[in-house]
Nucleic acid binder design. Structure first.
Length: 504
RNA sequence: GCUCCGGUAGUGUAGCACGGCCAAUCAUAUCGGACUUUCAAUCCGAUGACUCGGGUUCGAAUCCCGGCCGGAGCACCA
């Protein structure tokens, strides 16, 4: 069969009608338990973000469902986009997510494999070195014509010159496809190029495969049975079909999922990187970023992300990621285990103060969790007079004559109010009295036992206030609930507590 | 522009290959109520969708055609 005959028949790929669905998780086509092989193939240009989580989680879920194997493959064939630190960051992110992989490969270790396959294609005259300027080639291809290189440089000798003679930009290796293909970009697409920028891992090499060579070669060599990828790769799937056909390989099953639109967060790895270098962001875990590291710091649990991505599934329709749904899933995980503490948001330099007189000696004992027994937090209040710190918002609602209940304590009546100090007198002890007086229920922090707190919001703003003394018992990394305020993750403890807002 | 793909409640999802059991599932959201020493959790109730128009059929969310809307790709990135 001549190369023309081969290329005429190649490049056809029949897509599965996505997948047969069962309740819950869609079935992969032709999936046999114990034989399924999948891959997660990130580009190591930075750590993983929410956008990667979908592919990582779904591959993991399917690998486990079919008792298959998941291969972590680093696609580092573009030296300009490789961050040497990213490999380890990605492994850490996956471990945190609970995604288990059984094999790991780096494409930069496998360049000889791609060279070998490229030589095979050239020796069959199915690929050729093209030395045309890009614009020239594009113009020819637009008008269904071949460039001269197609017939003159389709030899092993020409190919070797890519290693010995040409420099970056002077030559690429192109696959012979169909010069009249209705999709112009499929016409003799490139599969190898030369890059002068040294690769952090293999600095002696300068010829690199493009993804439409390295990906099908690896997918085949690694014995993958199913490939989950975004629909932005559909055209690449068509291109890669030529490689399979030329080399006589059986194609795996492809599932293309739709776009996941994620709003209100920074996701571009290159922009994040620049922002970090410029000092705009504090690091990869800056709470404004959509990295897994940032979500972790915000108190989002990996299982919440997994659940949301699992629910989203692999449909080809574009969808909008919902932070609300993620928070709802996360709340289910943290609510049962989060200790409760009192926190008031107020200006540290002139806090809202409530001065109560005539009050009895009182031991305020509140549970660390309203439904599960996690112990108590105790505050001893003075008899005679006692100062409390309040939320600015609660303070602003106080009016002379109001009866207000201080949570877990007693009821007071406001007698006088100035800018940030309100005077009050003890009114009564019981909750029933509070109800009878339609008293608002507010939380408080005992003045003198207050710990300064800085709550960092995901939008980058800081919210200052004070928490009760026992909050110091919460360890860094814990997610706790500040009552009537929301869940936060304790991020640091020194003279003050720094916390990151998780969600309401 | 060209090539390809998709459209179920605010969001996500099930159902669509083999039309009737779908006055359409589940989760989340929103609203109301119960409970509660948190504006959390929990419990109860309500709200809310088959993109539109034709066709096939006894019968269409499901099949066919067209419109509308949305998306992807058209790199010597992945």
């Amino acid at each position: 069969m001549s190369s023309e005959d081969i290329s005429r028949k190649a490049g056809e790929h029949n897509f599965e009608k996505t997948v047969k669905n069962e309740r819950g998780l869609a079935e992969l086509p032709d999936a046999e338990a114990g034989k399924v092989r999948l891959r997660f193939a990130p580009n190591p240009s930075g750590p993983l973000h929410l956008g990667h989580a979908r592919a990582a989680v779904l591959n993991d879920v399917y690998a486990k469902k079919y008792d298959g194997r998941l291969i972590l493959r680093f696609e580092d064939t573009d030296p300009k986009r490789v961050d040497p630190d990213a490999y380890e960051m990605i492994r850490n992110d996956l471990e945190w997510l609970g995604v288990a992989w059984q094999e790991e490969v780096l494409q930069s270790d496998r360049l000889d494999l791609y060279y070998r396959r490229a030589r095979e294609l050239v020796s069959k005259s199915l690929a050729y070195v093209c030395t045309c300027r890009q614009e020239v080639f594009k113009a020819l291809r637009e008008s269904d014509r071949a460039c001269e290189c197609r017939d003159t440089l389709d030899s092993p000798e020409a190919f070797e010159k890519m290693f010995t003679q040409y420099c970056e930009g002077e030559a690429v290796l192109r696959l012979k496809t169909d010069l009249a293909h209705k999709n112009v970009s499929i016409r003799d697409f490139p599969i190898m190029r030369i890059v002068d920028t040294p690769h952090p891992r293999v600095s002696d090499k300068k010829v690199y495969p493009l993804m439409n060579l390295s990906v099908p070669v690896d997918d085949h060599e690694l014995g993958l049975t199913h490939i989950l990828r975004g629909k932005d790769h559909i055209l690449n799937t068509h291109k890669q079909a030529y490689i399979y056909d030329y080399l006589g390989w059986e194609k795996p099953h492809y599932i293309h999922y739709g776009l996941l639109k994620i709003r209100d967060v920074m996701l571009s790895t290159s922009e994040m990187k620049k922002g970090i270098e410029d000092g705009v962001y504090s690091g990869w875990d800056d709470v404004r970023l959509g990295t897994l590291a940032a979500l972790r710091r915000r108190g989002i649990k990996p299982d919440a992300i997994k659940k949301v991505m699992f629910d989203v599934g692999v449909k080809q329709t574009d969808i909008t990621f919902s932070w609300k749904n993620l928070y709802a899933q996360n709340k289910k995980l943290i609510d049962p285990v989060a200790n409760r503490y009192s926190f008031v948001e107020t200006r540290p330099d002139s806090p809202s103060v409530l001065r109560v007189v005539n009050c009895p000696e009182w031991v305020s004992k509140n549970r660390l969790h309203p439904t599960y027994d996690r112990g108590d937090r105790q505050v001893d209040l003075n008899s005679g007079s006692q100062d409390f710190l309040l939320n600015d918002s609660d303070f602003s609602e106080l009016k002379e004559g109001n009866v207000v209940r201080l949570m877990g304590t007693y009821n007071i009546k406001v007698t006088e109010k100035s800018k940030n100090i309100a005077d009050a007198v003890f009114h009564s002890k019981s909750l029933e009295e509070a109800r009878a007086n339609k008293a608002r229920l507010i939380n408080w922090v005992k003045s003198g036992e207050n710990i300064a707190v800085d709550v960092l919001s995901p939008d980058g703003t800081h919210h200052l206030g004070f928490a009760e003394r026992d909050t110091l018992n919460a360890e860094v990394g814990w997610v706790v609930q500040f009552e009537r305020y929301g869940f936060v993750r304790i991020d640091g403890k020194d003279d003050k507590i720094t916390a990151v807002f998780t969600h309401k």
